[in-house]
Every structure is written in C-alpha cells, then in structure tokens.
Design a binder for these strands. Sequence first.
DNA 1: ATTATTTGGTTTATATTATAAACTTGTTTA
DNA 2: TAAACAAGTTTATAATATAAACCAAATAAT
Lengths: 94, 94
Amino acid sequence: MEQPNKLLSNPIRLVVVSSLYQVASADFTALMELTGASKGNLSVQLKKLQEAEYIQIKKSFKDNYPNTRCSITSEGKSAFEKHVAYLKKVLRIT
Amino acid sequence: MEQPNKLLSNPIRLVVVSSLYQVASADFTALMELTGASKGNLSVQLKKLQEAEYIQIKKSFKDNYPNTRCSITSEGKSAFEKHVAYLKKVLRIT
DNA sequence: ATTATTTGGTTTATATTATAAACTTGTTTA
DNA sequence: TAAACAAGTTTATAATATAAACCAAATAAT
C-alpha cells in the first residue's frame, strides 16, 4: 500500500518537489540555492521530475537571459503527499 | 547544518535502521519481511550499515541454522535522529 | 572592436550504488 | 543418498548520481 517513491528518495529531487509544493514556482537559480546541487546535476534531476510529470518547466527570457521556471503538477503534489505519508509511517512520526 | 544522510536515503536501509531504532534487535529473516528486499540485496545493505557502524551484527546458530541478528549502535541512533530532523525540516512537518 | 568573463543552462563521461542471479554451506526430508 | 530447503554471501549487471566539459548568448574589460 504505502511504498517509497524512488524519484523522491533522492535528496535533491525531494527538496525540489517539497519546495515547489509550498511555493507556486521557482526558477533554476533559486533551486540551485535551495538544493545546493551543481547546475549539471540539477538540470538532470529537473528533467527526470519533468519526465515523470511531477513538475512543469517553462522556459523564457528574463532580462535578456534564459530563465527556467518550475512548478509542481497535481501528479507531483499527490506523489509528494503519498511519500510523506510513507515516511511518517516508517519514521513513526505523527 | 542539517544535511541529508546518504546511507539513510536508501529506503531499505532507512527501514532497517528505523526498525532497529524501535526494537532492540531483529534477525535477517525479520528484516527481509520488514523491508521486502531480496536476501542478496539485504545482505549488502546490512554490511554497509555495519561498515558505517550504524548497526552491529551477531552471528550464531539457532536450531542448527545460521542466524544473523542485528541491533542499532549509538552512532546509528544519532545518525537516524539527525536524518529525521533533516527530513522534518525539508518536509515541513512538526 | 576584439577578447575575456559571466550567465544560464545542457550533454555526457565517469563514478557510485542498487539489485538480483548465481553461488555456498550446511540441514532436513523423501 | 539424492533432492529440496534454509540462511546467507558474492558478484555481475543495471540503474543512478554527479560534475566536468561543453554551448550560446550577454556583458565587461582593454
């Protein structure tokens, strides 16, 4: 029933999804700071989350520079909630 | 300050450590049921936890069969507590 | 007006990790 | 005594994570 979510077992992806669960949207630079990941690493983790349809990525230009803005999808929200429920059970926290 | 623990980011190892945090000791078979891992997989994960000194393994014979009994160390307890604190922060749960 | 540096990323080669199949050693059952 | 089972371990392979190298455009320095 309650099983661990592999995508969300990676700390970088967990922080990304958890952050986007609270925050409407965040761009690449903000997510780098939040996660502490290198840009290469963050780039592939975001792509994985996008492929799983946990997040949505909108690319645009902001002040002449490319800007990658991410937001969570309803699938992402639901997956996150389930994973949190799983963790709570495993960790025995209410 | 609060960082993810890599060893405890693996779901099998997390369940092992979390279980041993509650339970004084558990043997290989019990941990297989708790984690759902194959024995090969469980075997290497236990060894990793042992190498990190998160758990202690005592081998004996029980009813003529080998028996592998695991318990958590104080280092394991502390690591688990810290990781839980980290997760709580990331997941925004009290 | 080149050249160098910075911004904001992506691709990809390599290192690390996870996993189960194959193996081992001994026990019980037929 | 041969087959099946118990309780693991080893190891080959698959999957994953990570950062170095790369790219394209913008800005700064000379």
